[in-house]
Amino acid sequence: MAILINKKTKVLVQGITGTQASFHIQRAKKYGTKIVAGVVPSKKEETHLGVPLFKTVKEAKEATGANASIVFVPAKQAKSAIIEAIDANLDFVVAITSGISVVDMMEIRQRLSNSKTILIGPNTPGIITPEQAYMGIFPDNIHKKGEIGLISRSSTLTYEVVLELNKLGLGQSTIVGLGDDFIIGASFIDIIEKFNNDAKTKAIVLIAGIGGNLEIETAKRYAEIKHKKPVIALMINNPTKVLGYDTFASKIICDGITETEDKKDILRQSGIIVVDDIKSLTNELSKI
């Protein structure tokens, strides 16, 4: 088992004909991902990369039974593409696109609140169940099958962590990149709940983002869950102060909790193990 994606997941691709999409979809197919359809509103050909093309998500879903979508559509058109996938009631949508505007994301979140569809991203490397299938732009061959569930707000740190886990022989059940943008779809707690119900996952690693209050919300809700798996959060201190987004107004919105140390305390109080570098993370994991 795994969460969200496995080799049976029927994936449709929105914006499949772009150069980047073509490159990454070919690799995903080779990996074992079941790519069943491509959606291109202005389609001229019947197939692309051997995948049948459709004009709408709805058509593609009806014809192929696709239950998930990966979005490679450029930022300016991404909102309508994502909303189309939500309206078609797909189980989940993975949005690779970066640069979607804040106002578009607020509207997308509004739509998601009345829907069962889960949005992963945007600006995410995607999701991967090692040695089965992936939807995203993952590097080849670095992910190993195993029992650690990974949820991350930083794409590049995810790769760095996976490489260290592999060195210790710690494989991964599923890796979920939540996306690096300020406003995202699914949050840590949504995915933690899924890992809790996954027999294959023994422990969950959470890679925190830089700034923001998503981790605080996670801690509050994690504390309320009764039966749960151990969660270890990696929160790296931000030495530069030039990254992140702590304005006076955002400090007020976050109820004044913006210092990394304060956030760590809140996470610890909820029962989450907190570490501040990758070495300590692997140390904690080898204890479990």
Binding site: S154, T156, T158, D180, I236, N237, D277
Partner: peptide, 12 residues
């Protein structure tokens, strides 16, 4: 680098 997280980790 090619990411904020990686930037911070490398600087640290």
């Amino acid at each position: 680098v090619n990411g904020d997280g990686l930037a911070i980790n490398t600087i640290n």
